[in-house]
């Protein structure tokens, strides 16, 4: 793989007017791009002969709603355990992350000519969530953006065919948002009396079997924060 440091330098020298923040972690280059500069930057990334990102591999919606929030505080805990029974409150009023921007879209680009990758992260801002569509830059954005729309409710402006893709016909809500319950809202069953499949509110209770804990003293090779 080509050197990501060089790629980062080249981008910063030539295209700093797009106001992106670049970061290298684990040999992967990620640019945090302001929403309005996304489309022009993508066209440049595709067409610059030294960059040549011909392929858009992936579009991932991300919901930072509960980023960094754990379900079980373990730093001081010594006498408290984690209740594995049904606890509705945890699901109705979940603790919220301190992050300002809730939704982001992450694009993964690949250059076959130069054999390098890059990731672009765009924070979408407040609802309604709008971001420019990239279908006219890379055709592969089509279904990927439909998926992000379906699962996160992010609206891609000027998308030719922004329909739901993975969820059921007539589905309500955006299931991959962190405040959408894992068990869903409705369940389907066949009703013999009416002779058709009907939807009802879910009957199962949500529960957490393994609490989400955040430890900083746990793994080797990790910076110890004390």
């Amino acid at each position: 793989m080509a050197n990501v440091e060089n790629l980062k330098l080249r981008l910063e020298q030539r295209y700093s007017h797009f106001n992106f923040i670049s970061q290298i972690k684990a040999e992967e280059l990620t640019l945090e791009v302001p929403k309005e500069n996304l489309r022009p930057l993508c066209i440049v990334l595709r067409d610059d002969p030294e960059l040549k990102f011909e392929q858009l591999m992936d579009v991932a919606g991300v919901d930072y709603f509960q980023h960094g929030v754990s379900e079980w505080e373990t730093v001081q805990a010594s006498t408290t355990g984690f209740e594995r029974g049904v606890q509705r409150e945890n699901f109705i009023n979940p603790p919220i992350s301190a992050k300002k921007n809730r939704f982001a879209v992450v694009y993964h680009l690949l250059s076959i000519t130069h054999n390098h990758r890059i990731a672009l992260r765009v924070f979408v801002g407040e609802e309604p969530l709008f971001v420019d569509s990239l279908v006219d830059v890379w055709s592969s954005a089509n279904w990927n953006e439909r998926e992000a729309y379906d699962l996160f409710g992010i609206i891609f402006e000027n998308h030719p065919d922004l329909r739901r893709i993975l969820t059921d016909y007539g589905f309500i809500g955006h299931p991959f948002r962190k405040d959408f319950p894992l068990i869903g809202d409705v369940e389907a069953r066949f009703d013999a009396a009416q002779g058709r499949v009907i939807y009802e509110a879910v009957s199962i209770e949500p529960r957490t079997l393994v609490p989400k804990v955040i430890r900083t003293d746990h793994c080797e090779g990790q910076e110890k924060n004390g």
Binding site: K25, E28, T30, A119, V210, V213, C219
Partner: peptide
């Protein structure tokens, strides 16, 4: 509990 992975992201 499993193991905790340091904050970050990768592809």
């Amino acid at each position: 509990e499993g193991y905790c992975i340091p904050e970050g992201e990768c592809y």
